[in-house]
């Protein structure tokens, strides 16, 4: 396939356009995506149904009764023609997620250490040393895909996903990290657990984390974890085979 000139628009049904801005994952993408989303909200007004940002794209969904794909396309091209990125300092709230890194709640911690040729302590240090960016939300409500991990921690997903990953589990896969908002099946490597409520239907804004936010995992001990409402007892089915 010929390389595509970016940005470009791809049809996404009769009520959507995929705006493709980039072809690789970079932190700076988020500044452009934030600006584009904001412009879309202003320009489409009531005809806008949903905006789904992800690493390199923004899916724009509109009401096809009130705006045609052709009109929506023109609108988007106008926005793209004059788009400037959001200011680096202004976007992205910083969240500190207290995290209890322990084999009790992070059954893959030892295996990750073995694969990376690091001690468990060094894995914890590497994971908590840097701020991550939220590149996308998906998979489940409030599930934030964050990156990028220190190269030394890069490890594949499990061959067989667990049937039930406990809520709050902090996990890594590939060059990404995440925390599970609710109990779901999951194939990432579990290295710890946070007491933070990642998704709360009764909270304004619902999801703790948004695309573009920054996240820092702060190591805490079991006492702090439990004092902050963390659940230790949830079973995680033990280490992956």
């Amino acid at each position: 396939m010929k390389p595509t000139r970016l940005p470009c628009l791809e049809r996404a049904g009769l009520d959507g356009w995929m705006v493709r801005l980039f072809d690789s994952i970079e932190e700076n993408n988020l500044l452009w995506l934030a600006a584009l989303a904001e412009e879309c909200e202003a320009a489409f007004g009531d005809t806008l149904v949903d905006l789904v940002p992800s690493y390199t794209t923004l899916l724009v969904v509109f009401d096809p009764l009130h705006i045609s794909p052709c009109e929506a396309r023109k609108q988007l091209l106008d926005i793209l023609a004059t788009l400037t990125p959001a200011e680096a300092g202004t976007s992205g709230k910083l969240h500190e997620l207290p995290t209890w890194y322990d084999l009790q709640v992070g059954p893959d911690l030892q295996r990750v250490a073995d694969m990376s040729d690091l001690s468990v302590e060094a894995v914890i240090e590497a994971h908590s040393a840097r701020d991550y960016r939220v590149f996308a939300l998906g998979f489940a409500p409030g599930f934030a895909f964050m990156g990028l991990l220190d190269q030394s921690l890069t490890c594949p997903r499990l061959d067989t996903p667990r049937q039930k990953v406990p809520a709050g589990s902090v996990a890594i896969a590939g060059q990404q990290t995440a925390a599970y908002p609710v109990v779901t099946p999951g194939g990432w490597n579990l290295i710890g657990r946070t007491p933070a409520r990642l998704f709360d239907r009764n909270r304004e804004g619902l999801s703790l984390l948004r695309v573009g936010d920054r996240v820092r995992f702060v190591p805490v001990n079991q006492d702090t974890f439990e004092a902050e409402g963390g659940e230790t007892t949830l079973t995680n089915g033990g280490p992956a085979k």
Binding site: A12, G13, S24, S54, Y55, T56, T57, V61, A136
Partner: peptide, 13 residues
């Protein structure tokens, strides 16, 4: 292409 960077999926995709 066998897989992409994840992106939004609309109804009927």
């Amino acid at each position: 292409i066998s897989s992409l960077v994840s992106e939004g999926i609309s109804l009927g995709a």
